[in-house]
Design a protein around this nucleic acid. Structure first.
Lengths: 136, 136
DNA sequence: CCTGTAACTTGCGAAAGACAAGTCACAGGC
DNA sequence: GCCTGTGACTTGTCTTTCGCAAGTTACAGG
């Protein structure tokens, strides 16, 4: 019998050495957190979804200041998980743009829920300008 | 001028020594991630919100197997951030139950968005049984 | 007194994060 | 032909956090 968040007392531990590919449980919330549950990944999705950013440098320039090794790692994981696709916009030297797949773009509802929560509970949170919220 | 996710090129780095209390930017999404953007915190909120769990031991018994030092740390942070309150249910020895504040309970919409996303994009994800979804 | 249980705390090796600096390929100016 | 600059990363090093086991404290029951 598999452990999941509806059956209590199972505690399967797994080595993190094996990479991020293994699920902690079959709970849908845990599944999402296994994929994007860190401080940086959803900020990249935000940049792609609301800011219209597509290039490495644009992500680096976001105000949170993501370290470049973390950015490279997260882009790789997002690509591996099919949240984003990478397309060359020139071949010499090779340069790429990143864009969301439908799977990645569907995280919009999660981000919108976060924006709503912040609007209600975080004093200094700025609401996104209307130009970034088009098509919602 | 403050950096935020709508004004590009600012990169304020801050030492993590000063604790989790400082915001990376005024972006509402970054604000949420500063508070609950890790692999464990939202699972505790899930347990409180959907599973009806209230005690330390119950959180430990969740299938993901949270380490106890992480659990103690996250409960402290959730309490400090007023996501949960701690109430003694006996004084000798002192034992506590944890419950969500309205601020914490408002994360429900974020969790629901995650459940919906998982239902669509994660093959093995189990939907929560109806009994856990009452009142939505 | 001995065992058990709840709720933590402590210690330690391993992994991840933060930051600076370096690399590689080309483009443009002189 | 050489120098400077830019984009997209990679590498190195140090610090912080994580994951796990084990210990602690306070009481309850036999």
């Amino acid at each position: 019998m598999e452990g999941n968040c509806y059956s209590s007392p199972v505690a399967k531990r797994q080595s993190r050495k094996t990479g991020g590919g293994c699920k902690r449980s079959v709970c849908p919330i845990a599944n999402v957190l296994d994929l994007v549950g860190d401080k940086w990944t959803l900020l990249i999705v935000r940049d792609l979804l609301f800011m219209g950013k597509r290039r490495y440098r644009e992500f680096v320039e976001s105000p949170e200041g993501i370290p470049t090794n973390i950015l490279a790692d997260r882009l790789k994981r997002l690509e591996a998980g099919e949240f984003v696709t990478k397309a060359p916009y020139q071949t010499n030297p090779p340069r790429y743009t990143y864009s969301l797949t439908p799977k990645g773009a569907d995280l919009k509802s999660v981000l919108l829920a976060m924006i709503a929560w912040s609007g209600k509970h975080v004093p200094g949170a700025r609401k996104p300008p209307a130009k970034f919220m088009k098509g919602m």
